[in-house]
């Protein structure tokens, strides 16, 4: 499959005026997105996700590196590249609150050069699809956050671009509306559009994204299919039920040997992540020190939240 978005070595540094400190928001970020793919861009707060999204949208000029959209350099041919891109960057903040739902869609379509005559039937169809028909003449100011978020998505769809970028599309939504927005995103993906989602919402990634790029401290720490990451971490995580508490010396050795482990005293359960399969023997050696009885041993069930936490923790540990 051919790449529709190519991100090559994006680097961005900010100079803090007061302290004259240089903050690296993005440090050589590279990845590709294939046509029709839904890519999850994940990372903890301040990891560089929004900076990366804004550089892809050409709203922020990188210090180094480039972004190609359909082979068009977004810095050199910005307007040409923007014909293929639309974005919901700050969710409900991307809308004109003093205009109605329909007026917002007409205005933002007009700003992309689309006439009202052409836009109107498309707007009606989108309003129906996004469940906003009965709110068409309501001022955006009077809508709930969830409705505003859906409208922002509908505006991005109206642009009919090949690539849609969404920055935190489910942020601040209640469970029900979050679910509804995820359903809409699934619909969008089914249309064959390429979607890049920057999010903290692991449910969005696990449900919608085939592949994820995880960013931590401005660098890509994982670029892998979601299913592969889940499988990888499923084989690395073990849960050991113990018949007696661990000694201080055992705990010290565990901390020395394994980067990621958790031990609960009252339950006598040890969760440990093994870097290599043979590490299981090292674990057993530590338990044999005090002849600690092992009552049960099994692989841990993993969800994407744990994969994310472990990947970003490993990266932070390396720094």
């Amino acid at each position: 499959m051919s790449a529709i978005v190519e991100v090559e070595g994006l680097t961005k540094r900010y100079h803090k005026r007061a302290s004259k400190e240089v903050v690296t928001a993005a440090d050589g970020i590279s990845f590709r997105v294939d046509e029709g793919e839904i890519l999850g861009l994940l990372g903890p707060n301040g990891a560089g996700k929004t900076t990366t999204i804004k550089m892809i949208c050409s709203l922020l000029k990188p210090d180094a590196g480039r972004v190609l959209v359909r082979g068009i350099d977004t810095q050199r041919h910005r307007l040409r590249a923007l014909r293929h891109l639309s974005a919901v960057l700050e969710g409900n903040r991307n809308l004109y609150w003093r205009l109605s739902v329909r007026e917002n869609m007409l205005y933002l379509a007009g700003n992309r050069g689309v006439s009202a005559r052409v836009a109107r039937p498309k707007i009606d169809a989108l309003l129906g699809r996004f469940g906003l028909s009965d709110k068409a003449d309501e001022l955006v100011n009077n809508l709930s956050r969830g409705m505003q978020q859906k409208l922002a998505l509908a505006v991005a769809m109206l642009a009919e671009t090949d690539v849609v970028l969404l920055d935190e599309p489910t942020l601040g939504l209640d469970v029900g509306t979050g679910l509804e927005v995820r359903e809409l995103l699934r619909d969008v993906a089914a249309e064959g559009r390429t979607v890049i989602i920057s999010t903290h919402d692991m449910a969005v990634v696990q449900e919608l994204c085939k592949r994820t790029v995880i960013i931590s401290a401005g660098r890509v720490v994982a670029d892998e299919r979601v299913s592969n990451l889940l499988a990888l971490f499923a084989t690395r995580g073990y849960r050991v039920s113990l018949g007696a508490p661990l000694s201080a010396e055992q705990e010290r050795r565990l901390a020395h040997t394994f980067a990621v482990f958790a031990y609960g005293e009252p339950e006598l359960v040890l969760n440990v992540t093994l870097e290599h399969p043979e590490d299981i023997y090292r674990l057993m050696e530590i338990l044999r020190l005090e002849r600690t009885p092992v009552e049960d041993l099994g692989r841990t069930q993993v969800d994407f939240e744990r994969v994310f936490l472990e990947l970003t923790r490993e990266e932070t540990g390396r720094i």
Binding site: K54, L59, L82, S86, R93, N94, N111, R112
Partner: peptide, 18 residues
């Protein structure tokens, strides 16, 4: 302040024309 400026800059028409 409202967050709509970036939407204007996402237009292929060019923000200065808008």
């Amino acid at each position: 302040t409202r967050g709509t400026l970036e939407q204007l800059y996402m237009s292929p028409i060019g923000a200065w024309r808008i």
